[in-house]
């Protein structure tokens, strides 16, 4: 669905990404891991055309990102960015409905279909009672879930999530990943940035390790999350064992 072919991105005269290649297939959850400044956010921004690529190409559903309009991209790709406060009194429902922009023309009002997608998304994110609440009165974690709900309400087939769990409590971190997983099981795909290696191991089909704008490893969690790779990317020693319930990789830092 989304192919990243050997791209480089330049920021301020230095390479933020160099020679990164990656394919996001239908139904797949891809998790990007790396230290701060490794280029994870830049990669996500490149994937929906927010930052231009200096070389290489990104292909969305068979067409190069460069030839697509904003509307065409937004119909296929929805973004959950790191949260953003607004100084205007916007309700949670209005916020989620703003994600339906590409389905309306000028002067248009949202259709019943728009509203039902929005309410459903709020419900999925455990926010059914929050429709009329104002965004600037919500807690950071609640706002973050509204931001996720907006991305879900678009019905875009590809979700790009930049640290969606940063403000969330334990229960809602799991909820976030379960919702993303569920969408992927229904045929969507997702690219998620997180710093939680265990959540990555649990939910990812593909784990991608980035360091200094380069791709270090990519593949199944059990292949990629090795002590050597983690040492190289994060500079910390870890212990690896099997999760007692799921049997997946479990990562424990050694301080």
């Amino acid at each position: 669905m989304l192919e990243v072919n050997d791209i480089s991105v330049r920021y301020d005269g230095r390479d933020a990404l160099s020679g990164v290649g990656l394919a996001v297939r239908e139904g797949e959850t891809v998790v990007l891991l790396g230290a701060n400044g490794a280029g994870k956010t830049t990669l996500i921004k490149a994937m929906n055309g927010t930052v231009p690529v200096a070389s290489g190409e990104i292909v969305l559903n068979g067409r190069s990102l460069g030839v697509l309009s904003r509307r065409e991209i937004a119909r296929s790709v929805a973004v959950v960015a790191q949260e953003n406060e607004t100084r205007f009194p916007v309700t949670a429902l209005e916020f989620v409905l703003s994600g339906r922009f590409v389905y309306g023309g000028p002067f248009g009002w949202e259709t019943d279909e728009d509203v039902s997608f929005a309410s459903q998304a709020l419900q999925e994110c455990d926010l059914a009672e929050f429709e009329t609440r104002l965004m600037n009165e919500l807690s950071g974690g609640e706002r973050q879930r509204v931001v996720l709900a907006r991305a879900l309400a678009t019905n875009a087939r590809i979700l790009l999530l930049d640290e969606p769990t940063a403000n969330l409590d334990l229960a809602h971190q799991a909820m976030m990943f379960r919702l993303v997983r569920k969408r992927c099981d229904e045929g969507s795909s997702a690219v998620v940035i997180t710093h939680d290696l265990n959540l990555a191991a649990e939910f990812a089909d593909t784990v991608v390790l980035l360091k200094g704008g380069r791709l270090i490893a990519s593949g199944a969690a059990s292949d990629v999350l090795t002590a050597e790779n983690i040492k190289e990317v994060f500079g910390v020693d870890v212990l690896l064992d099997a999760h007692p319930v799921t049997g997946g990789v479990r990562v424990t830092s050694v301080f």
């Binding site: 929906n48 927010t50 309009s69 904003r70 509307r71 991209i73 937004a74 119909r75 929805a78 973004v79 960015a81 953003n84 607004t86 205007f88 916007v90 209005e94 916020f95 703003s98 994600g99 922009f101 590409v102 309306g104 000028p106 002067f107 248009g108 907006r150 678009t154």
Partner: peptide
């Protein structure tokens, strides 16, 4: 201005939000 109102609803939340959700900023 009214014809751009829906786009402005997104711009009011954030320029990046508007761009991500299909507005030709």
């Amino acid at each position: 201005l009214t014809s751009q109102a829906r786009a402005l609803n997104l711009m009011m939340i954030g320029e990046r939000d508007a761009f991500d959700f299909g507005v030709e900023v």
